[in-house]
Computed example of a mutant assay.
Amino acid sequence: MANERMERQTRQKEHIREALKECDEFISAQELHRKLEDAGQRIGLATVYRQLNALADSGAADTIRLGGQQLFRLCGDDVHHHHLVCTRCGHTVEIEPPSETWVRRTASKYGFTVSNHTVEVFGLCPDCQKAEEGSAGSKAESAA
């Protein structure tokens, strides 16, 4: 019975990893769970949360907070990296991190030592900027 349970957990973990691999952008546990269910996978939401957090803890997945929820994305490599994240559509681009010298100098300036760091830059991607400009123009036209 223990082997059967372990095999099931391993299969579920692999299904979660595969589904996450298919996502180019960050995704919430709820959205990933829905995607798994739509594909016919019977995996509990709590299991999805647990596995996503385990992937993030091991460094295999990135996690960010956006719009009050935690989002996940499978890392393409083991290289330390940072992101630009669109606050409207969630589009994400990996960016070069600030230099370690800058990080340590800034921390030292305030009496901190650095144990690790994460840099996420939030804003609007070019497509969402265009959409925002278009909707602003439409509002102006309808007001006239």
Results as ranks from 00 to 15, higher is better:
Met1Tyr: 15
Lys130Thr: 10
Cys75Glu: 07
Pro97Trp: 04
Thr118Phe: 01
Arg50Asn: 13
Cys128Val: 07
Glu100Tyr: 07
Lys109Ser: 13
Gln51Asn: 05
Gln41Arg: 06
Glu132Met: 04
Glu100Asn: 11
Arg34Thr: 11
Ala56Ser: 09
Gly76Asp: 06
Gln51Ser: 09
Phe122Lys: 11
Leu74Tyr: 03
Gln41Ile: 01
Pro98Gln: 08
Lys21Val: 08
Lys139Asp: 13
Asp38Arg: 06
His91Asn: 13
Thr10His: 11
Glu120Gln: 10
Gly111Asp: 09
Asp127Val: 01
Thr87Gly: 12
Asp78Thr: 03
Asn116Ile: 01
Lys109Asp: 15
Glu7Asp: 10
Glu141Cys: 08
Val114Ser: 14
Ala61Leu: 06
Glu96His: 07
Arg8Phe: 12
Ser142Phe: 05
Leu74Asp: 06
Gln70Leu: 03
Arg34Phe: 03
His117Gln: 08
Val114Cys: 13
Asp77Glu: 11
Gln41Leu: 00
Ala140Glu: 15
Thr113Asn: 14
Ala54His: 10
Asp78Arg: 07
Thr106Arg: 06
Ser138Ile: 07
Ala140Trp: 14
Arg34Cys: 12
Ser99Gly: 13
Glu22Trp: 08
Ile64Asn: 08
Leu20Thr: 05
Leu124Gly: 04
Val114Glu: 14
Glu25Arg: 08
Lys35Leu: 03
Arg88Pro: 09
Gln12Ile: 05
Pro98His: 04
Gly67Asp: 14
Val119Asp: 15
Leu84Pro: 06
Ala61Lys: 03
Gly68Cys: 06
Ser142Thr: 09
Ser28Asp: 13
Arg105Glu: 15
His81Gly: 03
Gln41Tyr: 06
Ala140Val: 04
Leu74Glu: 04
Asp24Leu: 02
Thr10Gly: 13
Gln12Tyr: 05
Asp62Asn: 12
Lys139Thr: 10
His33Phe: 02
Tyr49Leu: 11
Pro97Gln: 10
Phe26Met: 00
Ala19Val: 06
Phe112Thr: 07
Glu31Met: 05
Thr101Trp: 09
Thr101Asn: 10
His117Ile: 03
Val121Asn: 09
Ala56Gly: 05
Gly40Gln: 04
Glu31Asp: 14
Ala144Asp: 12
Val93Thr: 14
Leu45Tyr: 14
Gly137Pro: 00
His83Lys: 03
Glu31Val: 00
Pro97Met: 05
Ala39Leu: 09
Gly111Gln: 09
Gly111Thr: 05
Val48Phe: 03
Thr92Met: 00
Phe122Cys: 08
Glu18Pro: 01
Glu25Gly: 06
His81Gln: 01
Pro98Phe: 09
Pro126Leu: 03
Thr47Cys: 04
Ser58Arg: 11
Val85Trp: 04
Val114Thr: 02
Ala136Asp: 11
Leu74Pro: 01
Glu37Arg: 09
Cys23Ser: 15
Leu84Cys: 10
His91Tyr: 14
Thr106Phe: 10
Leu71Val: 09
Lys130Gln: 15
Ala29Gly: 13
Ala29Leu: 07
Val119Cys: 13
His91Trp: 13
